[in-house]
């Protein structure tokens, strides 16, 4: 890929670190979830880390991103501090949504995260509204509507593409396509190609969502288009979901065979940075160990944080 020539060392290592945070936190959740310390559903992003990491490499804190229910990966990639996410999963007042959101509702305006929604589809339109606002305020930012393949089944998806194209808004639609709507494969929920729909409204880009370099390259082009023209674009990244739709167990669907060696976005990027001489095995081990320490610290922070008290009107 062209990106192998153009990507800088710090960008590759930035993506790698973000992906490792998402992966290693997911692995820790898998260990801890059966102990019920997190009283909230979890929609893990294992296997899908490259999509948000490759995208967020091109975004600033002022660019806003609206998320669906599978929040952990994109929120952490966008900059949500690890301890704030973990504290939210633990239901503590120090959580990113002050223990009012849970796993599916994360917020961090400092890093351009005005919220996420557990009702599939609707947040696509909210991202379009953020783009309308950016255009009216003329502040040079863009917005991202970030969603999965099943969200394209909702009518609001089509309405949002039309609105953004019609009003010429600086919004990037990013479809993290794991090919599954809960347990239903894409060919059973969609009689269309997603980019076939999107291409009627705006330029489209396609990336291999298991390959951070592919996403980096295509997301870079898509973000540039939106920034330079002030008009919408669409990026589809096909990826693989390793875990069940919700919960801490590995996916076991026949329709979703996963090869954790071949399909691993982290293994792919680590191979690239080693072959290209950007980092050696010792440095990669150091990143992994540092991330592990950050996760330990985040869990300790959450465990020491207080639970909320009900407000007067809630009792």
């Amino acid at each position: 890929m062209a990106s192998a020539d153009s990507i800088k060392r710090e960008q590759a290592l930035w993506m790698l670190r973000r992906m490792r945070v998402v992966r290693q936190l997911s692995e820790r959740i898998v260990e801890l979830y059966p102990t019920d310390v997190m009283e909230t559903p979890v929609h893990l992003c294992m296997g899908q880390e490259a999509v948000s990491a490759g995208l967020c490499c091109h975004l600033t804190d002022d660019d806003v991103m609206l998320l669906g229910h599978r929040t952990h990966g994109p929120a952490l990639s966008k900059g949500l501090p690890l301890e704030k996410l973990v504290a939210e999963l633990y239901g503590r007042t120090t959580g990113c949504s002050k223990a009012r959101g849970g796993s599916m509702h994360v917020f961090d305006m400092e890093h351009g995260l005005p919220g996420s929604s557990a009702i599939v589809g609707g947040s696509i339109a909210v991202g379009v509204g953020a783009a309308l606002s950016a255009k009216m305020r003329d502040d040079g930012t863009i917005s991202v509507s970030y969603f999965g393949d099943a969200a394209t089944n909702a009518g609001v998806f089509y309405e949002s593409l039309n609105f953004a194209a019609l009003k010429k808004l600086p919004v990037l639609f990013v479809c993290e396509n794991n090919g599954l709507s809960n347990v239903m494969p894409q060919q059973e929920h969609s009689a269309y190609e997603i980019l076939g729909i999107a291409s009627q409204f705006m330029p489209t880009y396609r990336a291999d969502g298991t390959d951070a370099l592919s996403v980096f390259s295509q997301a870079g082009a898509a973000v540039s288009h939106v920034r330079e023209t002030g008009r919408p674009a669409f990026l589809e990244c096909k990826t693989k979901r390793w875990m069940k739709h919700q919960g801490h167990e590995a996916d076991d669907l026949d329709i979703n065979p996963v090869d954790r060696q071949k399909d691993c976005p982290i293994a792919k990027l680590e191979a690239f940075v080693q072959v290209s001489g950007m980092a050696n095995a010792r440095e990669l081990r150091a990143i992994r160990d540092e991330v592990e320490q950050e996760i330990n610290a985040a869990i300790e922070f959450a465990e020491k944080s207080p639970y909320p008290q009900p407000k007067a009107q809630e009792v």
Binding site: P114, G122, A125, S133, V156, S160, F163
Partner: peptide, 17 residues
């Protein structure tokens, strides 16, 4: 597109309008 229009209004309200 009432559903999207309403979501658009929300997105604008969250970002300073």
């Amino acid at each position: 597109s009432e559903n999207a229009n309403t979501g658009v209004a929300l997105g604008a309200a969250l970002t300073g309008m």
